[in-house]
């Protein structure tokens, strides 16, 4: 026992990325040690899901490419992040995703596609997609699974990594795999407690606030006209950090900073949706 927490002594290890020697603490992943490797399924508050395969890199001695989001650095490892092989893989993964999924609200993905020359239309007009009507079954949020890339982040956020409500899971298999409540029940009949922590981590906009969904539908959603201001929640004394996204002096979305030691990006229904009272005029 010590009065002070003395912490765990950490070793430093060296490895090579694209020819450059880098030193990182033991336990670091390749992704954390490199800048700007594109990824969709990696969440800074979640365990790596290893699902999207956008962040694949070459590691010398490995038969296949390696997911940089989850692979821990080993001493002497030689990593290449930008080779013909990694670019081919990234191009194909983005093409496959783009051919099956609506990526129109996925931040940065068009930039990455342009970078590697991805063309999802290559698979032809008859390529199977996950297109389906958006699920609007409650007043607070919308699930548009046409945009779902099955990154598992919402399931992990709802499950034992954060919210522990377990309202949703991956169901089905293969191309039919999808995020679902039990027996596809509407959210109000499920274990959902409307914390919105799934929306917080969704990388594609498949999950969104009802307000955002409606505004997008009527063409009034304008991110360039929005401000994001971080403040503190007015409900209870835990002191959760809220980032209020405001357009035309109207709160249109609430997020929480992922680096907050209080919330790690998570909120409850009151923090996420309880702001309406100040705007009732």
């Amino acid at each position: 026992m010590t009065i002070v927490d003395i912490g765990l002594p950490r070793r430093l290890i060296e490895f090579t990325v694209d020819g450059e020697q880098i030193t990182v603490p033991e336990g670091a992943t390749i992704l954390s040690a490199c800048k700007d490797i594109p990824t969709l399924c990696y969440g800074d508050t979640l365990e790596p899901a290893n699902a999207c395969r956008v962040c694949m890199v070459e590691v010398e001695g490995s038969r296949t490419l390696v997911p940089s989001c989850s692979r821990k650095v080993e001493p002497g490892m030689v990593v290449r992040t930008d080779t013909e092989r990694t670019r081919h893989s990234r191009r194909m993964v983005l093409e496959l995703l783009g051919s099956a999924t609506d990526l129109s609200t996925t931040p940065r993905v068009s930039e990455w596609m342009a970078e590697v020359g991805a063309d999802p239309s290559r698979f032809g007009p008859d390529a199977a997609t996950v297109s389906q009507p958006a699920l609007v079954d409650n007043p607070l949020y919308v699930r548009d699974y046409s945009k779902c890339i099955l990154c598992y982040k919402c399931v992990d956020a709802c499950g034992d990594q954060w919210q522990n409500s377990f309202a949703i899971a991956v169901a089905g298999r293969g191309f039919d795999a999808h995020i679902s409540t039990e027996f596809s029940a509407p959210l109000p009949d499920s274990a959902c407690v409307y914390c919105g922590n799934c929306i917080e981590v969704c990388p594609t906009g498949a999950l969104s606030f009802r307000r955002e969904f409606d505004k997008r539908a009527d063409g009034t959603w304008d991110e360039s006209a929005q401000t994001a201001t971080t403040t503190v929640c007015t409900f209870c004394g835990v002191g959760c950090n809220l980032t209020l996204h405001v357009q035309d002096n109207e709160i249109v979305k609430v997020t929480s900073p992922h680096d907050s030691t209080v919330t790690h990006g998570n909120l409850c229904i009151k923090g996420r949706f309880g702001w309406q009272h100040v705007q009732n005029t």
Binding site: P139, P188, F235, W275, Q276, Q279, N280
Partner: peptide, 11 residues
Amino acid sequence: GVQSGGFSSPL
């Protein structure tokens, strides 16, 4: 409930 009554909660 003065504050929380302001939004419609499915719960």
